[in-house]
Amino acid sequence: MIKKRRLSPFLLITLTLAILGLANTLFANPSQWVKNILLFIISAIIVYSLVYFFIIRKRHNKDELEKYRQAVKQSKMRQKKRQQSQISKVKPKRVNPLSKRKTTNPPHLRVIDGKKASKKRPMSL
């Protein structure tokens, strides 16, 4: 059974009064309404940025970030070393077409000899 979430009476009354106040300001003084909305948006952005920079940002451990950066550097160094060693090991080889034929894989099918000798010879006249 799914229960519908109901708003608490306090929240419902607060939202109703806020909507009525905004509607009243919109019809009575539209320029003041625009100023109020802009002021609300700007203050919300400021509060969010303050909370982010002073609380949320500090939650991320700086040591983890440093460890990650160190791991990335080590990984890049290892890749460079591998590439340099592979470049120095690679030597151009001449490929002989006859040896290329020899190294091919044998076929997976084989011929099974049947009973050829057991065939009866037809009668000759």
Rank of each mutant, 00 (worst) to 15 (best):
S118I: 05
P9V: 09
I56F: 10
R6N: 11
R57A: 09
L12A: 03
T25R: 15
V51K: 06
R101D: 04
S49H: 15
K115Y: 08
K67P: 01
L7S: 04
F53A: 06
G21P: 00
P9Q: 09
K93S: 03
A18Y: 07
R94A: 14
N61F: 12
Q86G: 06
S75L: 15
A44L: 10
P97A: 02
S124P: 05
G114W: 06
Y48D: 01
A117C: 10
I45L: 09
L11I: 03
I87Q: 07
V72H: 07
K73T: 04
R110L: 06
P30S: 01
M77H: 13
L109P: 01
P30N: 02
K73V: 04
M1W: 12
K119M: 11
L50A: 13
Q84C: 02
R110V: 14
P97Y: 02
E64Y: 14
I42N: 12
L109N: 04
L15S: 05
L109M: 12
L17V: 03
I19N: 00
K89V: 02
A71I: 08
R6S: 12
L39K: 11
K91C: 00
K115Q: 06
Q32H: 04
L125T: 04
L22W: 01
I87F: 09
S43C: 13
L20N: 02
N29S: 04
F10T: 04
S49A: 15
T16H: 03
T25A: 15
R94V: 05
K115E: 06
A23L: 13
L65Q: 06
K3A: 13
K102E: 11
G114E: 08
Q70M: 12
Q70P: 00
V34H: 07
K120S: 06
V34K: 06
Y48N: 06
E64V: 14
P9F: 09
